[in-house]
């Protein structure tokens, strides 16, 4: 699996945004992962502990939001969601369906603390 490469990318994006905002610490990182993107949360969290040490992200909590896959039937235009296995159109049973979303794989937002003297 490629969780180490993925975790390194998350760290580098978080540090990039945090430094631009002159953060003292990063407290939270929100990730959005679609059902069709394969990633094991536990492995990411495991690598995170190790690679975020000695950075301003060392005490940041990772939050995973999982989005279901959104499909549309090309025969009857019904839109439906799948969470686990792919299924044909629940209304007309067609397999001519199109994936509308489910490939999401992004860092959505971060929360930082910053020292302000105002």
């Amino acid at each position: 699996m490629h969780e180490l490469a993925v975790t390194e990318s998350i760290l580098s994006i978080a540090l990039d945004y945090a430094e631009r905002s002159h953060a003292a610490q990063v407290t939270d990182i929100h990730l959005v992962i679609g059902r069709l993107s394969s990633i094991v949360d536990d492995s990411v969290s495991f690598y995170w502990e190790i690679i975020s040490r000695d950075t301003i992200c060392s005490s940041a909590a990772l939050h995973f939001t999982r989005l279901p896959a959104q499909l549309i039937c090309l025969d009857c235009h019904t839109e439906y969601e799948v969470d686990q296995d792919l299924i044909p159109c629940p209304k007309c049973n067609s397999v001519k369906v199109k994936v509308l979303s489910g490939n999401e794989f992004r860092v959505e937002s971060i929360e930082i603390t910053s020292e302000e003297n105002d």
């Binding site: 978080a14 905002s21 990730l31 860092v107 959505e108 930082i112 603390t113 910053s114 003297n117």
Partner: peptide, 15 residues
């Protein structure tokens, strides 16, 4: 004083 700031990122992880 320390304050908490929310920053929108919206970047693909594999950027």
């Amino acid at each position: 004083m320390t304050k908490t700031i929310h920053i929108t990122v919206a970047e693909n992880i594999l950027r």
